[in-house]
């Protein structure tokens, strides 16, 4: 039986990429109901930290832990990763793209049409994804977080390519997720006005790997 997620933490995480130490002895803590906003200069390791939490990169030292959540599942399996790439197939329609991720990811939540309505794309459901603008593609990719239920959202520059109205809508959705006891880790170089947030600033840690 899954319980709600309480806290995600990392202890003295160290990670090398291509011979370069990107994260060194990093500790952080993110609590449910509040967004952890990761800031820092380019190359400070914001995206790397999110990919590490998503299980796509492995640390050389340190560990990640989760309080609460489903003990049957790994941390990545409880995360939604919203990275720079949209994971859309241009040949498939908007509806087919979203429907695939809904069926593939498991634990379905909102229907495809509810999620599309939420991001303002309901009218375009039958169009091929190839016809969408950059902002529309971004919103469609974001709708993926709504069709299946996962407690931890990892958002990498979530508002890039979005206009002011879309950005407000996205922040509202993220706010609802937090109100529902969800956990958000967002990497950004812009000030994101979340209602409840903690911040983590990554230093310019471009140190040669030992």
């Amino acid at each position: 039986m899954s319980t709600s997620v309480k806290r995600l933490f990392g202890r003295s995480l160290t990670l090398d990429r291509g011979g370069r130490r990107v994260l060194s002895d990093l500790s952080f803590e993110a609590a449910a109901g509040s967004a952890l906003v990761v800031t820092g200069a380019n190359g400070a390791g914001k995206s790397t930290l999110l990919r590490l939490i998503a299980g796509l990169l492995r640390p050389v030292a340190g560990d990640l832990g989760l309080d609460g959540g489903d003990p049957e599942l790994t941390i990545p399996q409880q995360c939604h990763y919203f990275g720079h790439m949209d994971a859309l197939k241009p040949q498939l329609s908007v509806e087919e793209n979203l429907g695939f991720w809904r069926a593939f990811t498991g634990s379905a939540d909102a229907t495809v049409f509810e999620a599309l309505a939420r991001v303002g794309l309901a009218r375009l459901a039958s169009l091929p994804a190839a016809y969408l603008s950059a902002g529309q593609r971004r919103r469609l990719a974001f709708a993926r977080l709504l069709v299946t239920k996962r407690p931890i959202w990892l958002l990498d520059e979530p508002t890039s390519a979005l206009d002011a109205a879309s950005e407000a809508r996205l922040l509202e959705v993220v706010g609802d997720h937090l109100d529902g006891g969800g956990l958000v880790v967002a990497a950004t170089h812009l000030a994101l006005p979340f209602a409840r947030m903690d911040s983590l600033r990554l230093g310019p840690s471009v140190v040669e790997a030992a």
Binding site: P76, C79, Y81, K89
Partner: peptide, 9 residues
């Protein structure tokens, strides 16, 4: 297109 990341997760 980034879909592989999601499949891995």
């Amino acid at each position: 297109d980034g879909g592989l990341d999601l499949v891995l997760m």
